[in-house]
């Protein structure tokens, strides 16, 4: 059974189509990163999965339950970290978690959950005075109540400092080890690479790419760069480098030779060629294609869905 499955899921607001015929499948036990720039339709999709917004057309299931007809059963079995949530300012962090435990009929210990998210010292403070990061931690503790089979986390690291984001990732990993499926949205790529089994990239309400991260990179023939800082650049060196099959482009920038490679395993060969030309290399810098660049390419270039998915 898939943890999440949607079939032509569509939501229109007036003339605007926020989500356009989405077919999504999140497998049991995987970590799925749901990516895209703001306004791409990620939150609308999540709102439909949670029953906040009814779909205009299409259908979906979460853990086998229908998102329209069986929303309560879905929310009983999942943990939700919502986006743009507000807290009950006059209630303590402990009371927030306790409320989630009561509503779910779970037998968790609120204090233990708050300790897990690193808030044990603030457990009895009223949430009104909390920073964004602290609120995010309370919300995560609430999401963890009842050992949910699926965690839906909407922009989980927003408001967290790098340390907090790392703790968030380690909690996500622990949940996956326990057997949970994790579905989370983000508009920041770097947090995703380390943790996701698969990613889906949304743009204008459609899924423009969906795959494992390494496969996505391969699909795009992602190019790595080698930057060599040298003392001199002989005239014929660039010409010679361009004849190498693994080099797709090269140019000089100050005292650097920038070499664009379509096969990153051929770096040694390139360096040997440069040294054989009698050039002394002072420094070597290597740049791997980042997911960030890939993301930018997918969400800003004119890449159509068929090009990517069909590749």
């Amino acid at each position: 059974m898939s943890a999440i499955e949607t079939d032509s899921l569509t939501r229109r607001f007036g003339d605007v189509t926020a989500v356009d015929g989405l077919d999504l499948e999140v497998k049991d036990g995987e970590v799925y990163g749901f990516l895209g720039p703001n306004g791409a339709g990620k939150s609308t999709t999540i709102n439909m999965l949670l029953g906040f917004t009814p779909p205009t057309s299409g259908s979906g299931t979460v853990l086998g339950y229908d998102i329209v007809e069986e929303s309560q059963a879905i929310r009983q079995s999942i943990g939700v970290l919502p986006e743009d949530f507000g807290m009950y300012d006059r209630l303590t962090a402990h009371k927030h978690v306790q409320f989630a435990i009561e509503v779910k009929g779970a037998d968790d210990d609120a204090s233990a959950l708050l300790e897990r998210v690193g808030l044990e010292d603030a457990a009895d403070r009223k949430a009104g005075g909390f920073s964004t990061g602290m609120k995010q931690r309370v919300a995560l503790a609430m999401a963890l109540v009842g050992e949910p089979d699926l965690l839906i986390l909407d922009e989980p690291s927003s408001g967290l400092d790098p340390n907090g984001a790392r703790e968030m990732r380690s909690i996500i990993r622990a949940e996956v080890d326990r057997g949970a499926t994790v579905f989370f949205s983000s508009h920041i790529m770097e947090q995703v690479e380390a943790i996701c089994d698969r990613v889906g990239i949304m743009r204008d309400g459609r899924l423009v790419a969906e795959d494992r991260i390494d496969a996505l990179k391969d699909q795009f023939d992602a190019e790595s760069q080698l930057v060599l800082t040298v003392d001199t650049v002989p005239d014929d060196l660039l010409t010679e480098l361009r004849t190498m099959p693994s080099v797709s482009d090269t140019h000089v920038s100050g005292s650097d030779i920038v070499i664009v490679l379509n096969d990153s395993s051929r770096k040694a060969a390139v360096i040997n060629t440069v040294e054989a030309a009698g050039v002394e290399i002072d420094d070597i810098t290597s740049k791997e294609p980042s997911l960030e660049e890939l993301f930018a390419k997918l969400t800003t270039d004119d890449v159509s869905k068929s090009e990517v998915i069909g590749a």
Binding site: Q72, R75, V80, D84, F85, M87, Y88, H96, A139
Partner: peptide, 11 residues
């Protein structure tokens, strides 16, 4: 936005 907690839970 606290309604998101309220309705994200099985209420």
């Amino acid at each position: 936005g606290s309604i998101r907690f309220l309705l994200g839970l099985p209420n």
